[in-house]
Amino acid sequence: MKEEIIIAGFGGQGVLSMGKILAYSAIMQDMEVTWMPSYGPEMRGGTANVCVILSDKKIGSPIVTRYDTAIILNQQSMDKFENSVKPGGWLVYDPSGITRHPVRKDINICRIDAIEGAARIGNSKVYNMVVLGAFLQVKPLVSLENVEKGLAKSIPSRYAQMIPLNKAAIEDGMKNVEIVSRA
């Protein structure tokens, strides 16, 4: 098993920390991981993206151009990454802020209104966890138990009381993800 994922959106949406929590959860499941952010001047006020690779074998190249899954949280990232999803792969996106919805027919597409989800939980900071939940629903690569362990490792111990809230957000995302079309 090898899953190559791009997570892309605006800086501040929690793109990098979502990737980190996913990667840590996979380590808890004894997988190999790489987490490679785009870093550079373009990050300031602009788009942020991170490539996360999960594998049951040692990972060679951390740089890939075709993804099994793209998690897309703004229009710029949709324009950039829709065509990078491998045929038969998944595109998970948040429709708010998207003006041009995905059009490909050879991939699986699902949407998650994560702003609404975070509002249901009552904390806008768990936005990214709602999105992570949506991804885990369509690609159950990591068990919820290990995600919880991954959360505990990723969140500084002084915020440990936030773990149940994050878990609730993940479960909300799992419940409310909506399949748009299948390949």
Binding site: K20, V33, T34, P37
Partner: peptide, 10 residues
Amino acid sequence: DGIIGQMMEK
């Protein structure tokens, strides 16, 4: 290099 410095791994 920047990749090895910035990339997270186990």
